[in-house]
C-alpha cells in the first residue's frame, strides 16, 4: 500500500507533520516546566524562560529537597507503593487462582456467589463519607495501612489475572497434583512463574496508581505525615485571591522551586515509563474498561 498519487503523497506529508505537532503538544508543557526548574530565579521572574533553561543551575532542586517535609513524604510514598504492590498483588493473585478453577470438581462450592460478591464490589462502593468514617473508626487513621488496604482488592486486575490463569494448560497442574503437590505449591511454584507477563503488567499499573494517588493521603493521614503526591497537592494549591493580585502575592518566585517539586513527583513515573510502554497493550483491555 505505497502512496501513489500526488494527493496521497501530500496527505502523507501533511499527516506526518500533524503527528509530530501532536507529539510536541504533549511534550511542550513538560519541557517548559523542566526548563523553569533548571533556570535562575531572575530569568524565571522576568519570563524569559520558554523551553530551554536560562542560567542553568540546580538550586531549585536543592531547595525542594531541603524542605523538611519533602524527603519524609518521598519516603512514605516509596514505602506505600512497595507495600501496596506486594499486598495487592498477593491478595488478587490468590483470589484469581481460586476463581480460575470455576465451580466444578476442581473449584469451590458457592463459586457463583463469590463471583457476584466481587462484581458488586467492583461496580459500587459505599461512597466517600461512609468509607472515610469506617477507616477512621477501625483505627487506621494516620496509619500507612489506610493507604493500602482500602484499595487492595482490585476486581479489574483480579479478572485480568484470572483470565490468564484460566488459559494455562490444565495438564500441568494435574501432573503436579498427581505428584502430591497441594494448592499452595501449585500456586506459588507453577502459576506465578508462568504468569510473569501479566503480573508485570498489573504490577506496573499498580505502581503508577499508588504513586499518583493523593486523595486518600489527604483524608486519612495527619499533618505532615503524607505521601509525596498529597504534599504536592497542598504545595500547588496556593489560593488564588483574584486575577489582579494572584501573581504578586502568591509567587514571589517560588515558580522555579514549584516546578522542581512537581517534576520530582513525576520522576518515578517518567523513569519506569519506557518499561511500562512495553506492557500497555496487554493492560489495555483493562484500562479501556476501567475509565
Amino acid at each position: 500500500m505505497q502512496p501513489t498519487t500526488t494527493a496521497e503523497r501530500s496527505f502523507q506529508i501533511f499527516n506526518q507533520i500533524l503527528m509530530v505537532f501532536l507529539a510536541l503538544v504533549c511534550l511542550v508543557p513538560l519541557l517548559h516546566v523542566l526548563a523553569l526548574s533548571l533556570s535562575s530565579s531572575a530569568s524565571v521572574m522576568s519570563n524569559q524562560v520558554t523551553f530551554w533553561p536560562i542560567g542553568l543551575n540546580f538550586n531549585s532542586y536543592e531547595k525542594a529537597l531541603e524542605n523538611p517535609t519533602f524527603l519524609p513524604a518521598l519516603g512514605l510514598s516509596a514505602k506505600r507503593t512497595i507495600l501496596s504492590l506486594a499486598v495487592s498483588l498477593l491478595v488478587n493473585c490468590l483470589a484469581a487462582y481460586v476463581l480460575s478453577k470455576g465451580g466444578g470438581r476442581d473449584g469451590i462450592a458457592g463459586y457463583k456467589g463469590f463471583v457476584g460478591f466481587f462484581i458488586v464490589a467492583m461496580l459500587f462502593n459505599g461512597g466517600m463519607i461512609p468509607t472515610y468514617l469506617l477507616v477512621t473508626k477501625i483505627g487506621l487513621y494516620n496509619s500507612i495501612w489506610a493507604l493500602i488496604l482500602p484499595s487492595a482488592v482490585n476486581v479489574f486486575y483480579l479478572i485480568l489475572i484470572m483470565n490468564f490463569f484460566k488459559a494455562l494448560p490444565k495438564e500441568l497442574e494435574e501432573a503436579a497434583f498427581m505428584d502430591g503437590a497441594n494448592h499452595w505449591q501449585v500456586f506459588a511454584r507453577m502459576f506465578l512463574p508462568l504468569s510473569l507477563p501479566v503480573l508485570a503488567t498489573v504490577g506496573l499499573f499498580m505502581v503508577v496508581n499508588d504513586w499518583n494517588e493523593w486523595f486518600m493521603g489527604s483524608i486519612y493521614m495527619k499533618g505532615d505525615n503524607v505521601p509525596l503526591s498529597t504534599l504536592l497537592k497542598s504545595i500547588i494549591s496556593v489560593p488564588i485571591v483574584d486575577a489582579s493580585n494572584a501573581s504578586e502575592v502568591a509567587k514571589l518566585n517560588n515558580r522555579s522551586i514549584r516546578a522542581a517539586q512537581v517534576l520530582i513527583g513525576a520522576l518515578p513515573i517518567l523513569l519506569i515509563y519506557p518499561v511500562l510502554q512495553r506492557f500497555f497493550t496487554q493492560g489495555i483491555v483493562i484500562g479501556a474498561v476501567k475509565e
Binding site: N125, G126, L149, P150
Partner: peptide, 11 residues
C-alpha cells in the same frame, strides 16, 4: 472487600 466495600454500604 467485605470490610472496605460492603460495610460502608451500611453507612
Amino acid at each position: 472487600a467485605f470490610i472496605f466495600v460492603y460495610i460502608p454500604f451500611g453507612g
